[in-house]
């Protein structure tokens, strides 16, 4: 067995897998290390596409998922930044799962794809201007 100090170090290293009290019917301790998207396109594919679809056009059922294609609401970057950081309605917040860099990258990507032509890149500084609403896990 290793000395205590080394063991303590290992425990600290493993603490990234923090046990959070289970609230909903959730998978439990698994799934803690999915691949991490880096580029704007990767963030779009691995996160946004789950609702807004590969073509950015969203969908319509009992309610609808807004289309990002040819969307004038993307013109002022603060609006989509606020939506990604804090969410609203059916749109979840991503302040605790996407970094400012990932948020900037994906918004730059969306604003220059799907028929959108807002070529000025969104920066981490732009994202930092929108404060994240505090979110503490709850029942």
């Amino acid at each position: 067995m290793r000395p205590m100090s080394q063991v303590a170090g290992l425990i600290a290293a493993a603490l990234c897998l923090v046990a959070v009290p289970a609230l909903a019917d959730e998978p439990g301790p698994g799934g803690s290390k999915p691949p991490v998207p880096v580029s704007g396109e990767q963030v779009y594919t691995m996160v946004c596409q789950s609702c807004h679809m590969a073509d950015g056009k969203g969908g319509v059922g009992a309610g609808s998922i807004p289309s990002l294609a040819n969307n004038p609401k993307l013109k002022i970057a603060a609006y989509p930044i606020s939506m990604v950081v804090n969410g609203r309605g059916a749109m979840p917040w991503f302040s605790d799962t996407l970094s400012a860099k990932q948020t900037a990258e994906v918004l730059t990507y969306v604003r220059t794809h799907f028929g959108n032509g807002y070529i000025k890149p969104v920066t981490e500084a732009d994202v930092a201007l929108i404060p994240a609403t505090p979110r503490t896990a709850s029942h």
Binding site: S50, A62, A90, T133, P134, T136, A137, H139
Partner: peptide
């Protein structure tokens, strides 16, 4: 089944926080 794409639910279940509660 991907719950974010379920046409009549658009998600799995409500995500409350201490703050929104």
């Amino acid at each position: 089944v991907a719950w974010s794409r379920v046409p009549w639910a658009l998600g799995c279940c409500a995500r409350w926080t201490e703050e929104t509660r």
